[in-house]
Nucleic acid binder design. Structure first.
Length: 558
RNA sequence: GCCCCGCUAGCUCAGUUGGAUAGAGCAUCUGCCUUCUAAGCAGAGGGUCGGGGGUUCGAGUCCCUCGCGGGGCACCA
């Protein structure tokens, strides 16, 4: 069994369409989940879609399709209603699915569509100038979950944190540490948080004679020291959320390897750099402007960007040019996924243009944008020390609810964050609903084995006939397509919504046994117990797999 | 001024390339624990999908326009 049942039904539909005379391009037959359960699980509007091509009324087409369709494995009964073709999964197929899922367990829903593609996901590369706050939680959790999805579907993923080491912000940070070291208030635009004082005290202890050095010598040392301290802290914070990075890639490594220089040389040769007002700018090559054939369509409309300032200092953009070479050429990733806050959205066309100008296919640079997290009380500011740290949120709510909370929202929505409300509502967090379903299954499975030490090896799944039992199996049938959609669109928020549905089916199934003891999993009849145990195992594995993809734990007891 | 995102039930939000009667959680109200976990189950109420045009067999979904909110438009990152 490979791929989702949705996909197999879609293929069967297309075959049937060919058989009744559709030639040439096959329109999308829009086979999708039926919105109402009494129409079955899947429905296609193929009758309407093909009406023009076949010059027949939709009802007639739908009827002919339904009569022609060969559903693989007898998975579904087909019915034509109006111009629609409806599919109803058969109990036999659902029962066999339970056996299949129980057998392969954690691998159910996994695919090899990535075919081992090497790709890098770079996410939450926040300037290491202070602790992570709740806004940063979004990118880290989103990025990590995207990694988990990609790994689950056959990609070879490297998780990277890009550490900006030499820019205006980090220099201000260094200057702030320097000021605190000498008992002074950080300069205008500096970092005034308490933690800067603590870092200054650590530096006093760890860096001998640092106090005697003039600022121009002390600041770079203090800056690197302080950023290393902050990076350690960030590493610890994300670890609490079940997140680890494979690489913490420092910006200064790029310059040590000469990568920005290499990029600049290449761009200069191909005409993408020009000097103006004493600075070096990146923009479309003159030739291309005349030909109206810029390397990337947005580039023509973009304003030129400074690469080297008139004072000789490179901008972050120069580093980013080298960073592109580092990843696509030096380290050979086939694709790079960037997870950025929407405040960087204007930077997307520029980076794509830069990639194209360097000879890198811009489609291989995939940028996932997410909207911001705003504090209800007002805008957060790291420099002003006005923020709620991610650590505080985890302390007060716990890692699992925090991850679930962020993952539930599509990246496109802005989050208005209210800490007190989050803490007050943490007990209502839907994560517990899902985890409780998992724990219940684990518990009942243990009870079954305890009561019946000699259960049959094989389950007779044809005994799973109750509606609430088949409903669980039905939810299991949907899992592969949820994974397909989530990874295709790189949208992890689809996972928790699925988990909610599966957990609901599980709770109903379990509760049937509270209503009537003969509907329990553990009954006197060993064959029946064994069949229901099979269903428990299949559902529990799938719940666990889904929770794993979210980085949320699946406890056996609650 | 230009660009991006959002506006769906009291609140927070789902709704894949347009498909049949618009969903979930929370909150509110009503029932359900002597026996496998009540962090659960069953039921009820709650909607002009921001406003207005358009495209078509069909629009929450696509196009235009207006409004409101968030974010961008540096020799900052």
């Amino acid at each position: 069994m490979t791929g989702s049942i949705r996909q197999r039904l879609d293929e069967a539909m297309k075959e049937a369409a060919r058989a009744i005379g559709v030639d040439g391009d096959m329109p999308d037959l829009e086979l999708a989940r039926a919105k109402s359960a009494d129409r079955g699980e899947y429905a296609s509007s193929a009758g309407m879609k093909l009406a023009r091509a076949l010059k027949q009324p939709p009802q007639q087409i739908a009827s002919r399709l339904a009569a022609t369709l060969q559903v693989p494995g007898g998975a579904a009964r087909v019915e034509a209603v109006g111009g629609y073709v409806n599919f109803r999964l058969t109990p036999q197929w659902l029962q066999e699915l339970v056996t299949h899922v129980a057998a392969i367990g954690p691998r159910y829903g996994a695919t090899d569509i990535g075919r081992g593609e090497r790709l890098q996901v770079e996410f939450a590369s926040i300037n290491p100038t202070g602790p992570l706050h709740i806004g940063h939680g979004r990118g880290t959790i989103l990025g990590d979950s995207i990694c988990r999805l990609l790994e689950f579907t056959g990609h070879q993923v490297q998780r990277e944190y890009y550490v900006n080491s030499d820019n205006t912000q980090t220099r201000r940070f260094g200057a702030s540490v320097y000021a605190r070291l000498h008992g002074k208030v950080p300069p205008e635009g500096g970092y005034t948080g308490e933690y800067v004082i603590e870092i200054a005290e650590m530096a006093r202890r760890d860096l001998p004679h640092i106090e005697q050095l003039p600022e121009e010598e002390a600041e770079p040392q203090l800056r690197m020291y302080a950023m290393q301290k902050v990076v350690e802290q960030i590493r610890a914070t994300v670890a609490r959320l079940n997140i680890r990075y494979d690489e913490w890639f420092w910006e200064n490594w790029l310059w040590e390897k000469g990568l920005p220089q290499r990029a600049i040389d290449r761009l200069r040769e191909s005409g993408y750099l020009k000097e103006r007002d004493g600075a070096l700018w990146f923009g479309p090559a003159l030739q291309e402007l005349e030909d109206d054939g810029a390397v990337h369509k947005e580039l023509a409309e973009e304003e030129d960007r400074v690469v080297i300032r008139s004072n000789g200092q490179p901008t972050y953009f120069a580093s980013d040019l080298g960073y592109l070479l580092s990843r696509f050429e030096d380290r050979g990733f086939n694709r790079v996924v960037e997870v950025w806050g929407s405040d960087h959205h204007g930077y997307v066309p520029r980076m794509k243009s830069a990639a194209a100008a360097l000879g890198i296919d811009p489609a291989k640079l995939v940028v996932i944008l997410h909207q911001m997290v705003n504090l209800k009380e007002g805008k957060m500011s790291k420099r002003a020390g006005r923020f709620v740290t991610l650590d505080e949120l985890i302390d007060r709510v716990g890692s699992d609810p925090v991850r679930y909370f962020y993952l539930l929202r599509s990246p496109d929505t802005t989050i208005e964050f209210d800490l007190e409300l989050a803490v007050a509502q943490s007990n209502e967090n839907p994560v517990y609903y899902a985890q409780y379903a998992h724990a219940r299954l684990a518990n009942v499975e243990a009870t079954a084995v305890e009561k019946h030490p000699r259960l049959p090896e094989q389950a007779d799944v044809s005994l799973l006939v109750e509606p609430w039992e088949l409903d669980v199996a039905r939810q299991l049938a949907f899992w592969p397509e949820v994974v397909e959609d989530a990874v295709r669109l790189l949208e992890p928020h689809r996972i928790p919504y699925y988990v909610q549905d599966l957990a609901t089916a599980v709770h109903r199934f379990y509760h049937a046994g509270n209503e009537k003891s003969e509907h329990r999993v553990v009954v006197d009849d060993e064959r029946l117990t064994r069949a229901r145990l099979e269903l428990c195992r299949a559902a529990r594995h799938t719940l666990k797999t889904a929770l794993d993809l979210m980085g949320v734990s699946a406890p056996d007891r609650m």
